[in-house]
Every structure is written in structure tokens, then in C-alpha cells.
Design a protein around this nucleic acid. Structure first.
Length: 270
DNA sequence: CATCGGACCTGTTAGC
DNA sequence: TGCTAACAGGTCCGAT
């Protein structure tokens, strides 16, 4: 489910509900996620205060008095805040009860998500080596251009690689390339600096617009309040195989790259 | 080093 | 209606 806009939507929803609250109970119902939830975690975080919630790539960091809970939503994760007496539903694997009779719930049917612990003054290896944030100043066409020189890898796979830029998943990779007018099949090493500048602007624009709409709900993504995202209607190519292009009189095509579906218009993406 | 395929899971839908 | 196969928003890791 969640790419950067969905994770950011989740972060923004959580922020006013959990910051300055104290953790009064922690329950693990299924520890076997992508990695096992550390067994010491409940004891470590219980009683601590939540100072802030931040995001790095698709990771959410709930920053406590000392250390941070690191959460990832994987393919099917979502987080909600509900009354602490709410009855547990299927696939709600982890809960943090707060001092105002509410609790944070992690729901994740496929269990590709994660709940990890990061000590104070430490950065997990998973987070340490990530590339630039697409919505921050460090992200530029020049950087992507330099990183891509000499590469045969197609540009769609290239922009989905977290070493180059973080947060661009399968939906927004296709959407950004459409906006930039670049074919996903093009070798990343053969794309000009000028086109990389256009592409970085397209990525930033697409992600920003998606956040404004609360993300994309294809199947089951919901924000913290249970509401779906509304960017699905704005998708130009993703999930639109055989449908008309919104920009020219071409037809959207679906191909497989790196074992993932890519959608594009062969006529206006070159 | 760059690149590829497999692995981890469950649920939904399309096709027969 | 029921069975089976394909497919789904991520990304790490080991083999090549």
C-alpha cells in the first residue's frame, strides 16, 4: 500500500493525537512481521512520553524521551487511533495504549511491515544508508544524473531504488515518468541532465499533490481516522491498462519491469 | 560493483 | 458456485 504520500498522510494524522502523550501499555499480538518485534520493546517504551513523530523515507519514527519506535507499513500496513476499549480486529498485530484512553493500532494483513527499536543517539542500518528525500532541498536533477551515469538499468527501476531517491514506489514511479514524458523503458544512463531536472520536478509535484489528497487508496489504505485517500482519481497511468491517455490520443500500456507492473503511454513518453 | 531472482505473507479478483 | 492462478502499495539478501 503505502508509498511516501501515504506514510506522510499517516504521520500527519498521528501527530496531533499522540504527541505529548504518555505510553501506559503495549501489546504485541503477532510478533512475526518482516522482522520479529524486539521482545524487550514493551518494557523499554512503557511509561515513556512521545515527543514527536517524524518520517524518513517510508519509515515512521515515534520519538520518545529516550530512543525511537521505528515503524514501516510494508505493502499492506495502516495505523489507526481508536478508543482503548475497542475490540481487536483481525491482523491488528501491535498496539500502544496512551494516557488519554486511546490506543495506536498497527494493522497489516501481509505482515511485510515492521516495528523496530532505535536507541538514543543511534541510527538503524536500514535508515543510515538511504538516499535523499524527494521533498527536501538535497534532491536535484544533477544528483540523479550523476548517479545514473554508466547504468544500463531502466529509469523506472532506477528511481525506485532507495539509494538514489527515497519514497518513490510503484505507483508514483509510473506517474512521475508520465508527467516528465519519459519512457520507463529508457536506460537511466542514457537520460540527459535536462530530462533529469524535469523528472525531479515531476516526482516532487506528484508526491506533493498526492499528499494534499491524502494519498492513494487502491484497495485498503486508510489514514489514521479511517478515511481513504483521494489521489486514485488523479492517477494518469497507474492501473489504467488499455484506457485512453489523458494527454494524447494514445492508449496506456502495462509491462513488467523488475517483476513489478509499469504503466505508461508509448506515444507521449519517449 | 551492478543486476537479477527469490523470499517473506494474506487477501482479492479474474478466468475457467 | 467453486477451484485455481495471477496479482497486489516494499525491500532485503544472496547468487551471478
Amino acid at each position: 500500500m503505502p508509498e511516501l504520500p501515504e506514510v506522510e498522510t499517516t504521520r500527519r494524522g498521528l501527530e496531533p493525537l499522540i504527541v505529548d502523550r504518555k505510553i501506559v501499555a503495549v501489546r504485541i499480538h503477532q510478533k512475526q512481521l518482516r522482522w520479529e518485534i524486539p521482545s524487550h520493546l514493551p518494557k523499554t517504551i512503557n511509561g515513556q512520553k512521545i515527543n514527536s513523530i517524524t518520517r524518513r523515507a517510508k519509515y515512521l519514527l515515534i520519538n520518545l524521551t529516550s530512543g525511537s519506535i521505528v515503524m514501516h507499513l510494508g505493502m499492506s500496513g495502516s495505523i489507526s487511533v481508536v478508543p482503548s476499549g475497542a475490540i481487536l480486529k483481525k491482523h491488528q498485530h501491535f498496539e500502544i495504549e496512551l494516557d488519554n484512553k486511546t490506543k495506536i493500532l498497527l494493522h497489516d494483513p501481509r505482515r511485510f511491515g515492521a516495528v523496530l527499536w532505535q536507541k538514543e543517539n543511534e541510527t538503524l542500518k536500514l535508515i543510515r544508508n538511504l538516499g535523499p528525500e524527494p521533498l527536501n532541498d538535497g534532491f536535484s536533477g544533477d544528483t540523479l544524473y550523476k548517479l545514473s551515469r554508466g547504468k544500463k538499468q531502466n529509469i523506472k527501476t532506477f528511481i525506485m531504488d532507495n539509494n538514489n531517491v527515497v519514497g518513490v514506489g510503484n505507483i508514483y514511479a509510473s506517474e512521475s515518468l508520465f508527467v516528465a514524458g519519459i519512457s520507463p523503458k529508457r536506460a537511466s544512463g542514457n537520460v540527459s541532465k535536462k530530462r533529469y531536472q524535469k523528472l525531479t520536478r515531476s516526482i516532487t509535484d506528484v508526491l506533493t499533490r498526492a499528499i494534499e489528497k491524502g494519498g492513494t487508496t487502491l484497495n485498503d489504505f486508510t489514514a489514521v481516522d479511517g478515511q481513504p485517500g483521494h489521489f486514485s482519481q488523479a492517477l494518469a497511468v497507474y492501473n489504467r491498462k488499455d484506457m485512453p491517455c489523458k494527454r494524447c490520443d494514445g492508449t496506456i500500456k502495462r509491462i513488467i519491469q523488475n517483476q513489478r507492473a509499469s504503466y505508461y503511454c508509448p506515444k507521449c513518453q519517449t
